[in-house]
């Protein structure tokens, strides 16, 4: 049964351009990202995947001279609207980075800090446990909560970063190549975790690894540099992951996913 109502999307972009100075790093992106699904953004290096991802939580604001045109709608509001506070945007859209970047503090404090600065009023111990359980890390660290997060392995650190993100209960979690610095086993654990997380969160993941995109995502956006030689990246195809990998519409997508890209 097809739902005839207009689906409410987690994020909808309308004619989105991201500029660094006069250079459009990402141009003309129109995406509708489904709630509680995993959406992967794939594409060759330098095509603007990370830039696009960072446009979703206004992380690009910290790059001098960067600006955005078009709209990024979340809950029906443009997050680049003049009445929107970027801190509030980031508070609702968590982010996990390529290289695990826990705070050089205790494991407990890594999770508690974000909660505290956002005015969390509940039981902090419970929140820490819940978040660590949510990131499948609790069993490994429950006796080490006072230890510095830097003593964890890379994979554990990355799951701690995920725990830190879900502790502030965002709507959406952005992941920028979250497993690229990890070994295959740690990668597998992160991928399993994403399947758990999508029950409660909308996940957008940038990945270089097409197998990973195929394994974890429900939807895939294929990015590519524009053909006109402007070095500007855009989404050339966006649909269900199955279709992208088995029956792509665009020739370039087909070449890329089958490894004939060049």
């Amino acid at each position: 049964m097809q739902n005839t109502q207009i689906p409410e999307y987690a994020i909808e972009t309308k004619n989105l351009f991201v500029f660094y100075g006069s250079f459009a790093a990402v141009s003309e992106v129109n995406l509708k990202i489904e709630k509680q699904k995993v959406t992967a953004i794939i594409g060759p290096s330098g095509c603007g995947k990370s830039t696009l991802l960072r446009a979703f939580n206004r992380m690009n604001d910290f790059v001098p001279s960067s600006y955005v045109t078009g709209e990024v709608l979340m809950r029906g509001q443009n997050i680049y609207g003049s009445n929107i506070d970027p801190v509030e945007v980031r508070r609702n859209i968590g982010m996990v980075f390529q290289k695990p970047n826990p705070f050089p503090k205790s494991i407990y404090e890594n999770i508690a800090w974000g909660a505290r600065i956002n005015g969390f009023k509940g039981n902090m111990d419970e929140l820490v446990e819940q978040s660590l359980r949510g990131a499948a890390l609790w069993e490994e660290v429950k006796d080490l909560l006072k230890k510095n997060a830097y003593e964890l392995s890379g994979g554990q650190q990355q799951r701690l970063c995920i725990a830190r993100t879900i502790a502030i209960q965002p709507d959406i979690i952005l992941m920028d190549e979250p497993a690229s610095a990890l070994d295959p086993i740690s990668t597998l654990r992160i991928e399993e975790l994403m399947q758990e997380l999508k029950k409660n969160y909308t996940i957008i993941i940038v990945t270089h690894n097409m197998q990973q995109a195929a394994r974890v995502s429900d939807y895939t956006a294929m990015m590519m540099l524009e053909k006109d030689g402007s070095r500007s990246g855009t989404v050339i195809e966006f649909s269900e992951t199955k279709k992208i990998f088995t029956n792509p519409k665009d020739k370039r997508t087909e070449d890329y996913v089958t490894g004939r890209f060049g």
């Binding site: 801190v87 970047n101 974000g114 993100t165």
Partner: peptide, 19 residues
């Protein structure tokens, strides 16, 4: 990466600097 981590959980610039 540390600054981004802080901004990523919704910290203001001052909270990031101070903490």
């Amino acid at each position: 990466s540390l600054r981004q981590a802080a901004y990523g959980v919704g910290a203001t610039r001052w909270q990031t600097i101070w903490h």
